[in-house]
């Protein structure tokens, strides 16, 4: 087999390496506040990567992806408070709720593509939000559900607090990124990119593209559920804002800002948005404006996202 063309070490390798070292080694030297922000980055990073499976790889632009994240979080919240369920049952329940919902909704949405997919996922996302808001006896409505116990204690870590939880989240993040990286390099992962590139040709080659699209939707829902479970434990409460349209579109922004079909890019996008939001808003109430400017600049200068800077552009 021929070696890939020899190139100078890509800047991406350097950045990814430095980033990994930072995530691994820096937290003990950071304040609890920054550790908290990094925890958000890795959890939302999982979520952004899961959406990247859909947007970047299969080419399905979902605007309701926060729904699975939120439903899994509600699963944990409801089981661990209302029903006083154990940690295993709560996590399993959250995962099954989010993934099962993706399996169900996938049956509806995976028949359509492009802007129709965007619209129907957005509509379903709003239905889920409405449910979380209105199904008060179960979800607590607008007030949400508070009092979710700490995950570090539940699983018997010797220490609790921001740093142990961070490393727990980092382990989950590492497992998810490895799984997703293998997934996109797997035969199945390649079929998703084939659907993105030319779905009719995939069909004539013998692929049931509906099934592949559906499975990718379920996979993305499963990883989003993992993120939702971690988010519920991180915040200690759940509320309808987890799965509203703002959450879904911010997530969409993370993927497009960071660079779709790269997995790492969306993590960077998540990091950029979390940090920008929190650092900027300490100085100005106009931080949304700044985020908007960052986004416009990215579109103009790196339309394929930050992580694709300098790569060939798609026509």
């Amino acid at each position: 087999m021929a070696e890939p063309r020899a190139t100078a070490p890509d800047w991406r390798l350097v950045v990814a390496g430095l980033g990994a070292v930072f995530l691994l080694a820096a937290p003990p030297f950071l304040s609890a506040y920054w550790v908290g922000l990094l925890t958000q980055v890795v959890i939302l990073g999982i979520l952004a990567m899961s959406l990247d499976l859909l947007i970047g790889y299969t080419g399905l632009p979902s605007l309701g992806h926060a729904g699975f994240f939120g439903v899994a979080a509600y699963g944990v919240g409801i089981l661990s408070t209302t029903y006083q369920a154990g940690v295993v049952a709560s996590i399993a329940g959250g995962f099954i709720a989010g993934t099962g919902l993706a399996a169900l909704l996938g049956l509806i949405v995976s028949h359509v593509r492009d802007v129709y997919f965007l619209m129907i996922t957005m509509a379903l996302g709003m239905v889920l939000w409405g449910l979380s808001f209105r199904w008060i006896p179960v979800t607590g409505g607008d007030n949400g559900i508070a009092g979710i116990p700490r995950l570090e204690t539940l699983i018997g870590l010797p220490a609790t607090g921001p740093i142990p939880f961070y490393y727990l989240a980092l382990v989950v993040f590492a497992a998810c990124i490895v799984l997703m990286m293998v997934l996109v390099k797997s035969p199945f992962g390649l079929t998703l990119q084939g659907i993105r590139e030319h779905e009719p040709r995939m069909r004539s080659l013998g692929f049931n593209t509906w099934l592949h699209g559906y499975l990718s939707y379920v996979c993305a829902g499963a990883f989003a559920s993992v993120a939702g479970i971690m988010w519920a434990y991180y915040n200690g409460f759940v509320s309808p804002t987890y799965l509203d349209l703002t959450a879904s579109s911010e997530l969409f922004l993370m993927v497009t800002l960071g660079g779709p079909a790269t997995l790492v890019g969306p993590v960077i996008g998540a990091g950029a948005i979390v940090i920008l939001k929190n650092v900027m808003s300490a100085y100005t109430a106009r931080w949304l404006l700044i985020l908007g400017i960052v986004y416009i600049v990215t579109i103009l200068w790196a339309p394929q996202g930050l992580w694709n800077l300098g790569r060939h552009r798609r026509s």
Binding site: P187, F188, Q193, E197, H198, C219
Partner: peptide, 27 residues
């Protein structure tokens, strides 16, 4: 009709996998 953003080898690999059950191999 090709898969324009995929490499030539990936184009062919996809076609090879099309009728093989291992096209569902994920991990």
């Amino acid at each position: 009709r090709l898969f324009p953003e995929l490499s030539v080898i990936d184009n062919v690999l996809l076609a090879c996998a099309a009728l093989d059950r291992r096209k569902f191999t994920m991990f």
